[in-house]
């Protein structure tokens, strides 16, 4: 984080708000990109599952090649599990960026915008700590899976593939959370919360 410049302090109070909003646009774009990528992965799983169900329905229906080879997509369950894990982690940064996590607001409605922003700051700092912790631990888990050559049951796909995809999302989640801390600081300075 750079020191606030003179021009920043003249315009708006806070911690380099202009730089923050520029960085914020980049963070938002990266988060949105990951979320859409995760969503496309989800769509792929939908298509694969539908194909698998269809194939399974035709097991033993035809007795001539090549249709007698019809069957479920091998390892469809494994792909859904691993794919969802990766997709969920790709969704987390966007959720954090868009303030999507569930909170109970009823007890703080009387507070001013500034105090609400202070509470957001607390929440975002805690979220950053948690995100770093989760990402760090899962990365160690990834190292475990890498060294043990653990695979899935049917496809014999290395388990670390899923871990690796998920870890990427989690580190971006940690960085996004860190950015939201910065955003909260500036919202405190501005005395109001963002959208």
């Amino acid at each position: 984080m750079s020191m606030p410049t003179a021009s920043d302090q003249m315009h708006e109070p806070g911690l380099s708000p202009e730089l923050e909003s520029r960085i914020g646009r980049i963070v938002g774009a990266v988060a949105a990109f990951l979320a859409v990528a995760g969503g496309l992965l989800l769509l792929f799983l939908v298509a694969m599952t539908v194909i698998s169900i269809t194939g399974r329905a035709f097991v033993g229906v035809f007795h001539f090649a090549p249709l007698n080879r019809l069957g479920p997509v091998p390892g469809d369950f494994e792909m859904v599990s691993a794919g969802c894990a990766v997709a969920v982690c790709a969704f987390l940064p966007w959720c954090q960026y868009r303030r999507g996590h569930v909170t109970v607001d009823v007890f703080i409605t009387p507070l001013s915008g500034r105090w609400k922003a202070v509470l957001s700051l607390v929440g975002n700092v805690l979220m950053t700590v948690a995100a770093v912790l989760i990402a760090w631990r899962m990365q160690l888990g990834l190292a475990d899976k890498l060294s043990y050559n653990e695979t899935t049951m049917i496809l014999e796909m290395p388990v670390w593939y899923g871990y690796a995809g998920a870890v990427v999302g989690l580190w971006v989640f940690a960085l996004t959370s860190l950015y939201t801390v910065w955003r909260s600081i500036n919202e405190i300075a501005a005395g109001r919360e963002g959208p």
Binding site: R56, V59, G71, P72, P74, G75, D76, F77, E78, T151, M153, I154, E156
Partner: peptide
């Protein structure tokens, strides 16, 4: 398990995980 699924496949069944 992995081995049993391999066996089922080699016997001609369709293993479903």
């Amino acid at each position: 398990t992995r081995m049993v699924n391999k066996m089922l496949e080699s016997l001609g069944a369709t293993p479903v995980g």
